[in-house]
Amino acid sequence: MDYSTHARIRDGDPSVFRELFAAHAPLVYRHAVRTTGDRSLAEDVVSLTFLEAWRLRHRLRDEGDGPRPWLMGIAVNVLRNTTRAARRHRAALARIPLRDTVPDFADEIVGRLTDTARLAAAQRALGRLRRADREVFTLCVWSGLEYTEAAAALGIPVGTVRSRLSRARTRLRALAQEELERPVPPTPAPPTPVPPSRVGAAGPGGESTEPARRNGQVPGGRTRVARSNEERTR
């Protein structure tokens, strides 16, 4: 095979990197979307993958049918790092006390999209697999890599790819069905706002909810103030 493309990548030829991006960015994006379920995060994964490819271009070796396994291996590592960072971010947010409840309309939208629901169930099922099995499954099944390409991307023997993929398929059939049948918890109703007409009405204990008067205001208005001044001068 002619490895001139590999040599141009190692040399940092900008034109060959443009060709590499045009040819493989859609594959990296689809793989990231299916793995994370987050389109915005998938776009970040694509950018980081090609930045890493540029930084690690000297490590590309003259073997295989092309740069795809090398590039997808970088994408797998980027996904590992971004997934860990996302978990830490979610854990940090969970420690922050909630203040205001904002209604979430996502469930209504997802309920209309069967494909989205199935993808979400598949992602939850994948999350219950061992990471090694999950990576083989997403590369071979969702991203369409050959066994040899997945082996090169992950740095493992082809036989290991086959055994992990078989185990992942068997386990996922049961897990995906469980996730699809799992009931979705109801979304709590947002708090009912107090209408303007209730301002000034009595509160639950009989106390008045009327706003306090500003400093200088006296009940009764000017007449009572005038009488008080007359009485003091008598």
Rank of each mutant, 00 (worst) to 15 (best):
P190E: 12
Y147Q: 10
G111R: 06
G155K: 00
R68T: 05
P195N: 06
L175C: 04
R57G: 09
V225P: 06
A32P: 07
A92D: 15
P26I: 10
F50S: 05
E181G: 13
R80H: 00
R164C: 04
F50W: 09
R61T: 10
R59I: 02
P186T: 05
R167Q: 14
D13E: 09
P67C: 00
A122L: 10
T49Y: 00
R57L: 13
A7K: 13
E181A: 09
V218N: 02
A122G: 12
R213K: 12
G216S: 07
V199N: 04
R68C: 03
V141S: 07
Y29Q: 11
D62N: 07
N229D: 13
N77G: 11
R124G: 13
E19F: 05
R95W: 12
R222F: 14
L79T: 00
G73M: 01
L79V: 07
R213E: 13
A176D: 07
L154V: 00
G155W: 00
T83R: 10
T187P: 00
L180E: 01
Y29K: 06
L93F: 02
R124P: 01
F137K: 01
L60Y: 01
A25Y: 03
T192D: 14
P219F: 14
G205I: 07
S143A: 03
I74M: 05
I9W: 00
D62T: 13
P185I: 03
V46I: 11
E19W: 11
L20Q: 05
H89K: 08
L56K: 11
T116H: 13
R118P: 03
A85P: 05
D62Q: 05
A53C: 00
D2M: 12
A22I: 02
A85Q: 01
P193I: 02
P204S: 04
R162N: 15
D44S: 08
H58V: 13
T5G: 11
P196W: 10
R18T: 14
H24G: 01
E149H: 08
I96E: 12
G111V: 10
D104L: 06
V158N: 02
A117F: 12
R128V: 03
R118N: 06
T187E: 08
E146C: 05
P188H: 15
G220R: 07
A32E: 00
D44E: 06
R39M: 13
V161I: 01
Q217E: 14
I156W: 04
T187Y: 06
T49W: 02
L154I: 06
L41A: 12
R59F: 00
V76K: 09
N77Y: 13
G155Q: 02
I156T: 03
H89M: 13
R30Q: 08
D11Y: 12
L51H: 11
A202N: 08
A151W: 06
A168F: 06
E178M: 15
P190G: 12
R61S: 12
V102N: 00
D11F: 09
A53Y: 01
T114D: 12
R162I: 07
A176V: 09
P196V: 13
I96L: 09
L71V: 02
D13Q: 07
F137Y: 04
G200K: 05
D104K: 15
A168C: 09
R8W: 03
H6G: 08
